[in-house]
Design a protein around this nucleic acid. Structure first.
Ligand code: FES
Ligand code: FES
Lengths: 159, 159
DNA sequence: GTTAAATACGATCTTTTTTGTCGTATTTGA
DNA sequence: TCAAATACGACAAAAAAGATCGTATTTAAC
């Protein structure tokens, strides 16, 4: 999907929070819950999934918690979104059947090409946008310019 | 919202269908239903809304139907989406309270700026993309290059 | 070792959103 | 007058999203 729902929101909140900490310092879900009012259980599951995928590193036990496990400058927003919500898809008829595959509708749909094209545009944009950029680079670090890809919309549409 | 749901899908299907017809020629919802398998009632309501907004022109009575009422090259995808789904918003916390206004979450949310920024980017892209372009320009007509706006993401983020 | 605090994870329930359907009125050409 | 179409409001069904519960496991501190 394409939208920032709760899962993605909790993920971004958590990542932004953890990014501000010293390397190695852990953040518990309880901490997130009390600081931002996010529901404990729901946020907890999000962190678990992120930890499974290596975005976070989890430390169990008494003083456990999570810390950032990957360079956020190398984690695209597309990737993060896919981890939590599945393939970025602007319409339900896209995405499930293999990568950028076929549409489902009964048989005759006259807007398959346009929809796929729009979906590809959004995808490319999300793929070129790192989570670090999205959250705002904290100190220095090189700045990029995440933008929609520059090809001609029409030309691509007939490919 | 941000996604191509049924309403938007029916709208695009209808518009693409009507665009292929001679000027003044009408299209009934029944015709759309049988040609594309879209549910009559749902599609009908979509066309009614589009007619209210001037995107379509409706002709009542026995041989009535709809025809395109506005130059699709001057109708942005953003506008179409807003007519049917309300303000383009990548997250629920954006859009309802006035234009690009405040977020709702309890009080403390640390990702308001990033989310608003991402939302603005998507908005600008949708606003620069005409429905004519999206559906694929049929004959000739000047071609544009709808792309995400070119400003620096970071620079804007601090504005 | 026992306890407390934290993650891990499955299952379920509730709420919200989306989608479709029904009923009825109105228009208009034949 | 009838048939075919749009016009709309209200409701129902289905799907998705979100939150919660229950229980197990890990680990530091006492
Ligand atoms: S069914 Fe995929 S665009 Fe219509
Ligand atoms: S509440 Fe709007 S971004 Fe968090």
């Amino acid at each position: 999907m394409n939208k920032i729902n709760r899962k993605l929101e909790y993920a971004l909140i958590g990542l932004k929070h953890m990014r501000a900490k010293a390397p190695g310092e852990l953040t518990s879900v309880k901490e997130l819950a009390s600081a931002y009012g996010v529901p404990f259980d729901a946020a907890s599951r999000v962190m678990q999934v992120l930890a499974q995928k290596g975005v976070l590193i989890s430390e169990q036990g008494a003083h456990g918690g999570y810390m950032i496990g990957r360079d956020l400058a190398r984690l695209s927003y597309a990737e993060l979104s896919e981890i939590l919500l599945g393939k970025v898809a602007i319409a339900r008829c896209i995405g499930d059947s293999a990568d950028e595959g076929a549409c489902e509708m009964r048989g005759s749909c006259n807007i398959v090409t346009p929809v796929q094209m729009l979906n590809r545009k959004i995808n490319e944009f999300y793929r070129g946008l790192s989570v670090a950029e999205l959250l705002g680079v904290p100190s220095s670090k090189k700045k990029r310019e995440p933008e929609m890809p520059q090809q001609n919309f029409e030309a691509e549409a007939e490919a």
